[in-house]
Simulated scan of single mutants.
Amino acid sequence: MRFERIFDDLEGRFEHQEREEMRAVAEDLARAERAQLSLADRLRGAGRSVLTLHVGTDLRLEGLVEEVGEAWVALRDPESSQRAVIPMPAVSLVQGLPARARPAEESLLSPLGLGSVLRAIARDRSIVRLETAAGRIMGRIAAVGADSLDVQSLPTGEHGAVPGSVRVTVAMAALLAVIPR
């Protein structure tokens, strides 16, 4: 009878050890899977959550994730329906981002690059507000290159070129957000 208790005790310890090893392996696998996720994957998984993106030092943009590309995200303000295009490198912090993610192969990843999205805005001839590392520019996107864009500035928000408007070149690296008006 004493040996039965010893064997039962050993068997219980062995089962406990096996469970602990399985839990540790599962946690390691979960961490390894999480390490493969990009911010774009997490943004695609946001669903209908309202997020606040902190861009640069003073700019905060709030909205629902409308579309995600490899190097950009588009947010739509639920109240005004205003759309903002934000380059991924400009995003400093995200508030409201759920833990779930949606990898690119499981979702509608936009095949368009940031340049293509900006060219589409330029074709629309929309007046845009560009938030840059150097400040705010109002105007129309005139041309989009590989690493920069030209903007015909409209200092007071006019609809056409006026005296005082100038053509400004913005480096893509300095671009924080593009908000069509």
Rank of each mutant, 00 (worst) to 15 (best):
V85F: 12
E70R: 11
V73H: 01
A71N: 13
R44D: 01
T132W: 03
A46C: 06
R2L: 15
R100L: 11
G56S: 09
L118Y: 04
G96E: 07
P103G: 04
E15T: 14
A99N: 13
R48I: 09
G45E: 04
R48H: 13
V65K: 00
M88W: 09
P180K: 03
A177Q: 00
Q36Y: 00
D77C: 06
E105Y: 03
V117N: 01
A171L: 15
G135K: 06
D147P: 03
A122E: 07
E105Q: 05
G12C: 10
E70P: 01
E67Y: 07
E106T: 04
Q82A: 12
M172Y: 07
R125D: 14
A90G: 01
S148D: 14
P155K: 09
L10V: 10
A104P: 03
I6E: 13
D124L: 14
V25K: 08
R123A: 11
V144H: 03
P155A: 09
V117D: 00
L37P: 00
S153Q: 10
V162E: 08
G69K: 01
G113K: 08
G145R: 13
V117C: 05
A122D: 06
V166H: 10
P103H: 03
G63D: 05
D58K: 11
A101F: 02
R167S: 15
L114C: 04
G157F: 07
R100M: 11
R167T: 15
G45V: 02
I86R: 00
A24T: 04
E18N: 12
A35C: 07
L112V: 10
R42V: 07
R23E: 14
R167C: 11
E70G: 06
T156E: 13
L175D: 00
A71S: 15
I179G: 00
V73I: 06
E4Y: 09
E33M: 09
A24L: 05
G157S: 07
V94A: 03
I6L: 15
D28P: 02
G160I: 09
L37C: 05
A104Y: 06
G157L: 05
L154K: 00
S126G: 08
G135T: 07
L175Y: 04
R31L: 12
Q152G: 11
G12I: 08
A30T: 14
A26W: 09
M138C: 09
E70N: 10
D41V: 04
T52P: 01
E105A: 07
A120W: 02
R100T: 14
S92M: 11
E18K: 15
F3C: 14
T52W: 05
D9N: 12
A40R: 00
H16Q: 15
A32G: 04
R13S: 13
V162L: 08
L51S: 04
V50S: 10
Q152W: 10
S165W: 03
R102I: 07
R181I: 05
A104D: 05
V170G: 04
G96P: 04
D8A: 15
A174C: 05
V94E: 02
E66G: 13
E66R: 15
